[in-house]
């Protein structure tokens, strides 16, 4: 039989595939359906948080920051509880990252606050001596894109049945309702910030990128 396989590369490849696929089946599948469901308490992102998430992706935060706490004592001591796959149920795309130039951000909302993020994004070295992270001053100038964030939320609600507007889940509603909610959420964050530029822009009805990004970072718990 092996002699025959050696002369038939196609069936040899099929044989290799079957053997490797079996290993995948027994290691991945048994737990997959269960663990991929949303963990109790995991909720879809609000519109403001989604706008922040889009900025996180746009500025490639995930190139240096992972969002995955591995089950090692040294990691859980520093970052908190290890990550479960169900916690990423509403992450599209997931932002696990593959390299930690900076620290993991999976649960950064537990141990950093709005005012800290503000100092840090303006000038990372002012709070973390020796940090090699660049400053993100443009986030205090550019406006967050609430419209696109609503479009994303509406799309995943319609196409993937993400449970917006369900009991105990974030409200989405119409665009005007969502925009009003985003401004209410942003007001809380702006109140905790010091930048007069951001505060005045908010009074004019503009949400700066930094506000949305902080909303997203604070939601990571």
């Amino acid at each position: 039989m092996f002699h025959w396989l050696e002369r038939n590369p196609f069936f040899f490849a099929v044989g290799v595939f079957l053997v490797v696929a079996y290993a995948g089946v027994v290691t991945i599948l048994p737990d997959f359906m269960e663990s991929a469901r949303p963990v109790v308490g995991t909720k879809p992102y609000s519109v403001l948080e989604l706008a922040g998430r889009q900025i996180y992706i746009k500025d490639s935060c995930n190139a240096c920051h992972s969002q995955l706490v591995r089950p090692f004592k040294s990691e859980t001591d520093r970052y908190g509880m290890y990550s479960l796959s169900g916690e990423y149920a509403y992450d599209r795309p997931f932002l696990w990252g593959s390299k930690r130039t900076g620290p993991d951000l999976m649960r950064v909302g537990n141990y950093r606050t709005t005012d800290w993020h503000e100092y840090h994004m303006l000038n990372p070295k002012s709070v973390v001596p020796g940090s090699i992270m660049p400053a993100y001053k443009h986030m205090f100038k550019n406006n967050a894109d609430i419209d696109t964030a609503y479009a994303e939320a509406y799309t995943v609600k319609t196409v993937f049945n993400v449970p917006y507007d369900k009991p105990d889940m974030p409200k989405l509603g119409t665009f005007d309702e969502a925009k009003k909610d985003a401004f209410e959420a942003a007001a809380v964050i702006v109140a905790d910030m010091k930048s007069t530029e951001v505060k005045e822009a908010f009074k004019r009805g503009e949400i700066k990128e930094i506000v949305a990004l902080v909303a997203y970072l604070n939601s990571l718990k």
Binding site: D77, G80, R107, N110, Y111, T113, T114, W116
Partner: peptide, 12 residues
């Protein structure tokens, strides 16, 4: 007065 301090009660 300056800012918020997070809780450290998550078992870390």
């Amino acid at each position: 007065m300056i800012g918020n301090m997070p809780k450290f009660n998550d078992g870390r």
